[in-house]
Design a protein around this nucleic acid. Structure first.
Lengths: 408, 408
DNA sequence: CTGAAAGCGCTTACAG
DNA sequence: CTGAAAGCGCTTACAG
């Protein structure tokens, strides 16, 4: 009960028992004995290791080696089931070569300088950061470990990044809504200032515009940090202007694989409206962004307040930045006595499994979470072994059509 | 890109810059300088630390100290949103004194000896294990770190444990179902052999029996390990017999706080039927347990196969061991063209937030996940500081009644 | 094929 | 109040 944990077994104890030296023990337990240690001694060491229950001390080992097998994942939003799926993919692709350490950040918070510090103390072999905010990246120690960002559109120039190509899904969603006769739709954004949310909003507005659809609450992002570093604009879906003005040298070689540069993309749609400098920090009526915490309950509360205004402004549909937010909209609609999709259509992003069984089943832009995790892990191991390639093509999104957006 | 990470800053570098020794640097960065280092030098060290961006190397520090600030959480089921909530509670209660490291196990798998080994290498200050299986505990190195089990009913004698008192919730559920006229209900169990599932099943059957309700698929657990160690029975809700026969000395002093010994508990209901030695590994018709993986899709597939048989056997309701399983039952009912609750009532355990918006909203035994996490973290820190008390009272469950169990 | 020894970056008594 | 030195448990050249 006193935390002692008993006398720890050391290599010296194993060596003594096997009648050999610690050097030899080290060789054997690290699988480097082939041709360096006689089979007889190797066997004796193995036996002693088993009998004593010896485990190589991680701290001592990494101190001596000068490196770690640790991959740290900065986890900003553990309670979101989406995140769990990403982690599953990472774990799967990382295999046994690396120990995955999940650094849990307080829920609803973004990773701060302190979190980065604490993580740095572990000298991780690599760092994985999911849906980072622009400011988080600026806090990173420039001499830090190899880094892969997940779902961080617009940061391709700053670090190795694995992203989604949101356009197929958003196009399908907008086309679907347009066909159902919607002309004004509202957008419920996530309260987290992550780049991925900014891009979801930007693409939706952009593509909706080509259909003559107005999107309430999808104006410029007032939380985007000022363009001081020249990266701020990259936080959006990316504009040619911002990229051309960049002084970054470590670019992703293959620009054509980036979601905003795909061959089938017209010049117009490649430029997102976020390139504009207009500030709407002063809410311009019903067009101001509405943000909600990522939990169902928080989103429901926010939506209950926002829906009446949206309806007054003529909205017939709501798109939420994440499925968990969309669930909140469903709950809010219920509380307000509104029929979905009769009075209000609802759609989300992510396509969580639970969206199959909501009332009504939720239309959602499906984002392949586990694939994202796998791709990021592969990218990181490539980085660590020096075999990194330009970066995989962005992972395609698609639309899962369900009853929540059925024509009234 | 080569993983170098630049020259790491050491205490020696800080010392040189501050014109002092590494001993002094160590004192200052560890906040032990009060009255041991002059204010002037302390200040110089602080400045140097900032300028150089020095971070104490975790490996070297813990090697020198002989202990770690690491708390490792063995995470068997990350994708389950329930688990994320538990983790949030842990993180919250742990504060800054400990670094939480989530050791992610392959999804759907139970932690194995290898996982335990890998974790042992980190010499964690403490270990947190969520919903362990009985065999997992047996793999633990006896000389391991202080340990707290979460949602591990029946293991109170083997380790510090934080559990739920399932009875209030299950009683309410059974009463509710009985009032609605259900006489035969089916049980969908989780495929994971964790003790908590065994107890959920046992209490349901036990309490249902007092109402004259038959529970299909809630027979004895064929996966319960043989009673070789004398602990096997403790894996159930616990029987006096098993406990009296125990040779364990490190008991929880206050037995009256244990869920199976609460004052209002009758002698009969305190003994669960799992105390029986009858084996039903050979399926005895429709009464054999039906188990499903914890994902919605896996559960749906299983349920599609099982529901017809349940209906034939006269079942009018299904209780699932977890909400994610219950979602699968909802999906399966839909596929089979059944109305819920008209043709089949459905209920789950956990009360995930999403259960508010399912079709229909799901009745569920609410288990306070974050509270569980918080309580476990508090228990562990108490253990580490030697101030451990008999153990908190089990956390009360309650019933969230929703439309999925409304009378037809 | 095997082992003595240096060194990884800290912390902690222990002298001054 | 301050610093030199030992030692934490490994790994890795380096001699034999």
């Amino acid at each position: 009960m006193d935390g002692a944990g008993g006398p720890r077994v050391t290599a010296a104890m194993v060596a003594e028992r096997a009648g050999t030296s610690v050097s030899t023990v080290s060789l054997v337990v690290n699988g480097k004995s082939r041709g360096r240690v006689s089979p007889a001694i190797t066997e004796r060491v193995r036996t002693a290791v088993h009998e004593l229950g010896y485990v190589v001390d991680h701290a001592a080992s990494s101190l001596a080696r000068g490196r770690t097998d640790l991959v740290v994942l900065l986890a900003p939003d553990l309670p979101n089931p989406y995140f769990g799926r990403v982690t599953t993919g990472i774990r799967e692709a990382l295999g046994d070569r690396h120990q995955l350490m999940l650094s849990v950040i307080a829920s609803g918070t973004q990773p701060g300088a302190d979190d980065v510090r604490r993580v740095a103390a572990f000298r991780p072999a690599g760092l994985l950061v999911h849906a980072p905010s622009p400011t988080f990246l600026d806090e990173l120690d420039p001499g830090g470990p190899p880094l892969v960002l997940l779902d961080a559109p617009g940061f391709e120039d700053r670090a190795a990044t694995v992203t989604f190509d949101l356009r197929p899904g958003v196009r399908a969603l907008v086309g679907h809504l347009a066909a159902a006769g919607h002309r004004t739709i509202a957008y419920l954004d996530g309260a987290t200032p992550s780049a991925t949310f900014a891009v979801r909003r930007a693409w939706l507005r952009e593509i909706a515009a080509t259909h003559g659809i107005t999107v309430l609450g999808a104006g410029d992002d007032p939380d985007r940090p000022p363009a001081a570093t020249g990266h701020a604009r990259d936080g959006s879906a990316g504009s040619d202007r911002a990229r051309d003005g960049s002084t970054r040298s470590a670019r992703t070689p293959d620009h054509s694989t980036r979601p905003d540069r795909a061959p089938d993309d017209s010049a117009r749609s490649a430029r997102t409206p976020d390139g504009s400098t207009r500030s709407d920090r002063t809410p311009d009526g019903s067009a101001g962004p509405v943000r909600a915490g990522l939990s169902l309950d928080a989103a429901a509360d926010t939506a209950v307040g926002a829906i009446p205004g949206w309806l007054d402004a003529g909205a017939t549909a709501v798109v939420a930045a994440a499925d968990t937010l969309a669930y909140g909209v469903l709950a809010a609609a219920h509380r307000l006595g509104l029929d979905v999709p009769g009075d209000l259509a609802v759609a989300g992003f992510d396509d969580l499994p639970y969206s199959q069984v909501t009332a009504p089943p939720l239309t959602s832009v499906a984002l392949p979470a586990e694939e994202l995790g796998r791709a990021a892990a592969h990218r990181l191991t490539a980085l660590l072994t020096g075999t990194d390639t330009p970066g995989p093509a962005p992972l395609a999104s698609r639309l899962a059509v369900r009853a929540s957006t059925a024509p009234p």
